[in-house]
Design a protein around this nucleic acid. Structure first.
Length: 273
DNA sequence: ACTAACCTGTAA
DNA sequence: TTACAGGTTAGT
């Protein structure tokens, strides 16, 4: 489910509720959802710690606790983090319950792909999958030159390159297809064939689409909800994702639906070259 | 560079 | 019954 705009929305809505709260008790309903550090258990490390802040890196949420402990959470496809002011009965797919000083935090995931890992904060980047991530697309350091440099000597399809988290962190199937439509570029193009002007257009499209996604509080095409259980509204603004076979909003031609880089890909063969 | 695997639910 | 789903990774 969540790509950068959804994870960012979860981060913001969660932080409002849990900042400075102590984790008083952790109940593992499905223990495989969490992972400790070396010989120490997840619940042993995190219980009694206070939540200082929550950051985001790509699609990862970094819940930073006192005493130099960080919980790295990844929602994969259907993971959710929900805050409840009152104690709640866990739902069918709730795997972890954090009892806080005030209220509870529930981690749920229908498909059981999502994970939360406890790790000492100083090792949070060097010893985790964060190490390999590409730049943050909304930071000012991410310029058109950086985008070109990240593509490097690759010859892969644009679609594959933008989905690659080591090239750029945070884009997934929705925002890649939307960015390519906005940039007027075909997902079938090889990254090494972009002109300077096309590279500029792509860079601008990526930033515009991700920012619009955040402003709309994410895309609730299917399962996504924020920490309050509320939907986003970016699905109303989607130009191509999920619209295969329907008319292009730009030119009216039927949108193509193909399989590329192992993922369903929708684009307009007239507007995107 | 592609596919299978990890899982469950929903829609065709 | 089968195909497919906002992701990642380990295997050809």
């Amino acid at each position: 489910m969540p790509e950068l705009p959804e994870v960012e929305t979860i981060r913001r809505t969660l932080l409002e509720h849990v900042k400075d709260l102590k984790i008083e008790e952790i109940t593992l309903i499905w223990p495989s959802a969490v992972c400790g550090w070396q010989d120490k258990s997840f619940e042993g490390l995190a219980t009694g710690r206070r939540i200082k802040t929550i950051e985001r890196r790509g699609k990862y949420l970094l819940i930073m606790l006192d005493e130099d402990l960080t919980l790295i959470a990844h929602m994969r496809m259907t993971g959710r983090l929900n805050y409840f002011a009152e104690s709640q009965e866990p739902e069918k797919h709730t795997h972890v319950v954090f009892r806080l000083e005030h209220g509870e935090l529930h981690f749920s995931d229908v498909r059981k792909f999502g994970r939360i890992q406890a790790i000492p904060t100083p090792l949070c980047i060097s010893e985790s999958s964060l190490r390999k991530l590409g730049p943050e697309p909304l930071e000012k350091e991410f310029t058109p030159e950086v985008l070109k440099e990240r593509f490097g000597k690759k010859k892969v399809f644009l679609k594959a390159a933008l989905l690659d988290q080591t090239v750029l962190a945070g884009m997934g199937n929705i925002y890649v297809d939307e960015s390519l439509f906005l940039a007027g570029l075909s997902p079938n193009r090889r990254v090494d064939t972009l002109s300077k002007e096309e590279n500029l257009r792509l860079h601008r499209a990526i930033q515009n689409v991700l920012q619009a996604g955040i402003d709309a509080r994410g895309t609730s095409f299917r399962d996504y909800r924020d920490a309050n259980g509320e939907k986003g509204s970016f699905e109303l603004a989607l130009q191509v994702y999920g619209r295969g076979g329907e008319p292009c909003r730009g030119c009216g031609q039927t949108l193509e639906r193909i399989r590329l880089a192992g993922r369903t890909t929708v684009y307009c063969s007239r507007c995107q070259n």
